[in-house]
């Protein structure tokens, strides 16, 4: 028999396949997995929040706060606000936290509800206030976020990592610090419903304290005009800049609850 050299019929070393199809399957699979994880994390946040005790939250907060509190704390103003806050908490706003308030020198017109029951008020916001009622409304609004635990929800999915790393390794460790880097307290975002609920809470507090809700709408009008004109950095309530709708909602709520306007209490001497 004679040997005749010839090429093999087919190349066994290459799998006949469509590269595009393989790419779509693999990339699609990867994206699906990431999406599922993302959704699961979202559910995990909702599951986690009711189970976080205020005490654990305080531990958690300590690694978060140090970053936001880098500004200078105005001890004198903090003290004054704290006494007002204590009064509110004692009579009108029962919360599972003992809230503390810190005033930080900053040009930002903002206040925020930080984990662990700390309300941070930036000093420029205080400059805009003209009555104690307005101040009560601001504090009431932030306490409303604590009451509904929105401040934890606002941290989003990063909270899950934060809680896990804190539970495992304690408050000040590399992993918590890393997680904290992705959680910026000053960039908390609340949904419209959350803001509305916090507004209602603030109105309740206002009414309970003074017997009327005078000051709330004035404050809103002031913020709305500032929002449009003077400041670019008005971020209090800025997660949805729909001031007119929100004011309408406040008015509706007042009508519904039978709250009415009244004479505002001026700010204490030497403010």
């Amino acid at each position: 028999m004679q040997f005749v050299p010839r090429q093999p019929d087919r190349n066994v070393n290459i799998t006949p396949t469509s590269a595009i199809r393989e790419f779509l399957v693999l990339a699609g699979g990867l994206m699906a997995i990431v999406l599922v994880l993302y959704l699961l994390l979202g559910f995990a946040v909702e599951l986690l929040i009711p189970r976080l005790s205020p005490r654990f939250e305080q531990v958690l907060a300590s690694s978060l706060l140090s970053k936001t509190m880098s500004g200078k704390i105005d001890a004198e103003k903090s003290q004054k606000l704290q006494s007002l806050l204590d009064r509110l908490q004692e009579h009108c706003a029962r919360l599972p936290y003992h809230c503390t308030v810190k005033v930080i020198d900053s040009p930002r017109v903002n206040a925020l509800a930080a984990p662990g029951g700390t309300i941070i008020v930036f000093s420029s916001l205080l400059d805009e206030l003209s009555s104690e009622n307005e101040l009560t409304f601001v504090l009431g609004h932030e306490m409303g976020h604590f009451f509904h635990r929105d401040h934890l929800r606002g941290l989003g999915r990063g909270l899950v990592f934060m809680a896990i790393s804190t539970a495992l390794f304690g408050p000040h460790n590399q992993a918590s610090r890393l997680a904290a880097r992705f959680l910026n307290l000053t960039e908390l975002r609340f949904s419209r419903q959350q803001e509305t609920a916090a507004d209602h809470f603030a109105l309740d507090v206002l009414h309970c304290t003074y017997g009327h809700v005078g000051g709330a709408l004035i404050f809103f009008k002031k913020l709305a005009s500032m929002h449009h004109s003077r400041y670019a950095g008005v971020s209090f309530f800025s997660s949805h800049p729909l001031f007119p709708e929100r004011m309408q909602d406040l008015q509706d709520y007042c009508r519904q609850q039978g709250f009415h306007n009244g004479r505002v209490t001026p700010l204490p001497e030497g403010w």
Binding site: I14, T15, T17, A19, E22, F23, L26, A27, L30
Partner: peptide, 16 residues
């Protein structure tokens, strides 16, 4: 494609 394959495993057809 090969990097993606590295995640899931299997024959790296694109390098064949």
């Amino acid at each position: 494609l090969a990097d993606l394959r590295n995640i899931f495993g299997g024959a790296v057809k694109s390098y064949e």
